[in-house]
Structure formats: C-alpha cells, structure tokens
Design a protein around this nucleic acid. Structure first.
Lengths: 110, 110
DNA sequence: AACATTAATCGCAATTTTACGATTAAGCAA
DNA sequence: TTGCTTAATCGTAAAATTGCGATTAATGTT
C-alpha cells in the first residue's frame, strides 16, 4: 500500500502527475517564483528568503533538480541556481495541454 | 515532522500548491481526462475504467470534490460526476499565471 | 418487506513526504 | 595548514498519502 500504481496508468497521466507533484508544495513554488523574479542567477540566498531550515531548502532544491526544472552550478563556495528554460516550457506545455480541454457538459446535473 | 508549513507561505503559493497537489496523482489525472472526454455526465463507471478498487476511486473522487474541481449529483443508485467548469478555469488560470512568467537568465551559468 | 446495486466511509498497513539537527564535503581566506 | 563559509547528505521523527477489504447507507426492484 502507499504505493502509487504508476505502471497501470498512461505515460502522459504519469507525466502530468510528476510535474504537478513537484510544484505541489508552497516552498517549491516560492523557489520557482523567486528564481523567475531574479532575472539573473542567484547564488543560494534562498535559505534567507524561505521560512525553512537549510537542510529542508536543500531537499526541495534537490526535488526540483531531479525533475529538471532547475539547475545549479557551483560558484566558489556557493551554488548558483536558475530555471531550466527548456524544461520550464515543457512543463508549461504539459499543463497547457491538459487545460486546453474545454469543459462541455450539457446535462441537467451540471 | 511531515507537516507542510503552510502558514509561512504566501496565499498564492499555497493555492498553486493545493491545485497542483490534487492533480499530482495519475488516477486523478485519469479521472479528469475521462470526465473531459465524456461530453456528458457519466454515472460512476469510473471504477471500471481505472485500475483501482472501488474504495480507492471513491477516495480520489473525494479529493477532487474537496478542491471543487468536480461535483457529483445523486442519480438513483449511482452518482453522476462532472467537472465544475468555473473551478476548472480558475485552476487553469492559476497555472497559466505561474507559467506566464518568462525565464530570462542571462548569466553564463545558465 | 426482502433483495440487489451503487457509492461512501471505516480501519488498517505500507510507503512517501516534510522537516530539521548534525555531520560531511568542498572551496576560499588567513 | 587552519579556520570559515556554504551547501549536500545522513539519520530520524512525525505526518500525510495511497490502497483495499469490509462495512454501511441510500436507493431502486421484485
């Protein structure tokens, strides 16, 4: 139990789920928004911005990295993070594609 | 812990997270896609379509209902589900708004 | 009333997620 | 080298999620 039966669903459904999952936490949304706001790379002042401990922030960054939404390059003692433009647009398109479907139910119950 | 520190984040960040969370499972994505595909209301044949037990499907439906993305009306012994058009568009807009941000990092590290 | 059908809920187990202190690793500075 | 700074990783605890069998509730059928 507690295991999502991934293999029983279509690849696209799993893709949506994986991408949704990674932004399904306010801290990760905050990280993405912060990186978007900064037009330039920022070098790890995320810990100061977020209301979380350093270890926790690092863990969230790891998840965003795992999906490929952000990348980090070592810059001296600190690490410079930024959004991967290509992946960002891919994730965007996956959501756009899902929500492109119009809701058209004509029954009396809706 | 295991507790998301919701109160420490901005309302919009939590909103994105909540909406993302509800579609962060392939079964719920499948449910939404199925309801979108059916132009009319369907009356609970979701259990036949999904590779999950009735109790599990019911639980996923409950979560989608809790967020307001779907509604169910009792129709005899079965229940007729459909997507809430208004909420669907609100959720869509929340994602559109997030991904409307362009990625513009000019640093050498990106 | 007795029975059948359908979906929600309960109770439980396994797994995953979130969070953080402590430690480690890597690079820079004196 | 020694010390400092920064970020990743480890270990652990608490909570949430996923899944399902069993039960319950509601409605329709005979």
């Amino acid at each position: 139990m507690g295991v999502t039966k991934t293999q029983n669903f279509k690849e696209e459904q799993n893709k949506v789920a994986v991408y949704a999952r990674v932004i399904a936490h306010p801290a990760r949304v905050a990280i993405l928004q912060y990186l978007l706001k900064q037009k330039t790379c920022i070098c790890g002042d995320l810990v100061d911005v977020l209301p979380l401990a350093q270890a926790t922030v690092s863990q969230h960054l790891k998840e965003l990295k795992a999906v490929g939404l952000i990348k980090g390059t070592v810059e001296g003692t600190s690490v410079c993070y930024c959004i991967d433009k290509h992946k960002w647009e891919e994730v965007r398109d996956v959501f756009f594609n899902l929500f492109a479907n119009p809701v058209e139910c004509q029954d009396k119950c809706c």
